[in-house]
């Protein structure tokens, strides 16, 4: 009787251990990442943001100086009682030039923003891919405000670890 009980207990234990092992083996390894947090903290994003703002400021400076020049001509025209036709012509020419420049800067700024965004994501995607492979994940879910994931268990958040990995990779291995 005692022997039977031992055999049954042993069989149950073996079954449980094997079952858990198979369950863990089959179950995909998953985790989630707070995408906005990862993106905002990425050094490359900060560098490109600084570069972007610097370029924007330089462009604003150019436009400001052109506008100052234009207002100076405008005042001269007002003082002369709008009699000097060559000054009036110059005014319209310069105003057109400013408008063209403004339009060109706006287009360039949009293209630059797109280019930088694409560079950042290209790099982040590569690093996330490498991280997932290195850590043996089957799926890494990105959590953002798009309501794709309505619930996620807090313990599976790997954002901080991934942030560290991404920074290390970006600064050189």
């Amino acid at each position: 009787m005692k022997k039977k009980v031992i055999i049954i207990a042993f069989s149950v234990a073996v079954f449980c251990v094997l079952g858990s092992a198979i369950y863990l083996w089959v179950l995909p390894k998953t985790a989630y990442v707070e995408v906005a947090n990862l993106y905002d903290s990425f050094e490359m994003k900060k560098e490109l943001e600084t570069k972007f703002q610097k370029t924007q400021k330089e462009r604003e400076k150019i436009l400001d100086s052109l506008k100052t020049e234009l207002s100076f001509i405008s005042r001269k025209i007002e003082i002369s009682g709008r009699k000097n036709t060559s000054e009036i012509e110059e005014f319209y020419k310069k105003r057109e030039n400013i408008e063209l420049k403004q339009q060109q800067f706006d287009e360039d700024t949009d293209a630059m923003a797109e280019e930088f965004k694409s560079q950042i994501w290209k790099r982040l995607n590569q690093y996330i891919d490498d991280y997932g492979k290195a850590k043996g994940y089957d799926y890494l879910y990105g959590v953002d405000n798009s309501y794709t994931f309505l619930y996620h268990k807090k313990g599976n958040d790997i954002t901080e670890d991934l942030k560290k990995y991404v920074e290390q990779r970006y600064k050189g291995k």
Binding site: M44, E47, L48, E115, F116, S118, Q119, I120, K122, R123, Y170, K171, G172, K173
Partner: peptide, 20 residues
Amino acid sequence: EDRVISFNESILGIGTINFR
């Protein structure tokens, strides 16, 4: 010191790439 080679390329759409 370690040497970090930084290539801030501006033609392939990759951006800065660092090697340590």
